[in-house]
């Protein structure tokens, strides 16, 4: 197991190099001179020169990249062009807001998805199965910004149960988390159902029945652990969708998170902020997938742990 984790960590190195290189080049390949951008349209040439010197924009590209990399490793992404504050200081708070949103939504997806999937599989072709799968299809095909707007319309504006915007208090959390978690719940429900149906027909389930094990125990002890193996894989993929989903959800509910920050930064061509956001989100995505892969290995004992 340790060898496996080590190998996976080593495999991350080229991935992270790729991300940083891409982000670095982004700045240099976009049309326009960054120094010009920072100084503003009307700035005199000498101001631009000063900025170029300060940022080392006249050095050869590889030198700039190495310097950039050195800064990234120390979590120094430079200062925001809009606020002139260190980007890291701006992001820190927003990052945790988004992480919170993502985690709550994932928990909701997993909780609802797995329970719905099990019920559906155990009662295959009954009314509850058909109803659950219909709702799941609905949840899957609905764009989340639209769902967000609808929820806001009904529950905040019409019924007044939850505040329409913001983040922090428990009541503010409910609508954004439902908005973001629904699609995931639908995917997980469908995956759990099909995986569960496959597992239930396996020989070892028949063995358990022949031992005199009760049906409930068969479902929750013998079948579920095996059925979750493919679900975990989906969970990893789902997390990517979730991260992009936060951008829209934060926009809809006016939440001050990474998603909104990225959009605003792109609009303002605030390169250091965009770079920092992309790198942080990518690193997060890569590590979540690593965790998913490791837990997959943990669940699936059949895989040779060295291989």
């Amino acid at each position: 197991m340790l060898t496996y984790i080590l190998r996976r960590l080593i495999q991350l190195i080229p991935v992270l190099f790729g991300v940083t290189l891409f982000v670095f080049l982004l700045m240099h390949l976009t049309p326009g001179n960054p120094a010009q951008l920072m100084a503003g349209e009307q700035a005199p040439q000498e101001v631009i020169d000063r900025i170029e010197n300060r940022l080392g924009l006249n050095d050869p590209l590889p030198v700039q990249y190495v310097r950039f990399l050195g800064n990234v490793v120390q979590l120094d992404f430079g200062t925001s062009m809009r606020s002139n504050l260190p980007v890291m200081d701006e992001i820190r708070y927003k990052f945790f807001v988004t992480i919170e949103l993502a985690i709550y939504s994932t928990l909701l997806s997993v909780f609802i998805g797995i329970i719905a999937g099990i019920v559906s599989a155990v009662r295959q072709y009954t009314f509850s199965d058909i109803a659950i799968m219909f709702v799941a299809l609905f949840g899957l095909s609905m764009p989340n910004f639209w769902l967000g707007l609808m929820l806001m319309q009904w529950f905040s504006i019409n019924l007044g149960w939850f505040p329409p915007t913001g983040w922090g208090s428990a009541s503010q959390v409910v609508l954004p988390v439902i908005t973001l978690g629904t699609a995931g719940a639908a995917v997980i429900a469908r995956m759990t159902r099909s995986s569960m149906l496959e597992v239930i027909s396996q020989d070892y389930i028949r063995t358990a029945r022949a031992k005199g094990v009760r049906e409930r125990v068969i479902i929750y002890r013998h079948a579920l652990k095996n059925a979750l193996i493919p679900v975990v894989t989906v969970l990893g993929l789902q997390f990517g969708t979730l991260l992009s989903g936060t951008v829209l959800t934060e926009q809809v509910f006016a939440i001050n998170g990474m998603g909104r920050y990225v959009i605003d930064s792109i609009m303002a061509r605030d390169f250091p902020a965009v770079q920092a956001s992309i790198i942080i989100i990518s690193v997060m995505f890569v590590f979540v997938n690593l965790i998913v892969d490791i837990s997959y290995r943990f669940l699936n004992k059949r895989i040779d742990l060295n291989g």
Partner: peptide, 18 residues
């Protein structure tokens, strides 16, 4: 599993892998 027990053809798949 108590008065009557059963064993099956496929030892590879008849035991729970987890």
């Amino acid at each position: 599993g108590n008065t009557i027990s059963m064993i099956f053809q496929e030892p590879m798949t008849s035991l729970n892998p987890t």
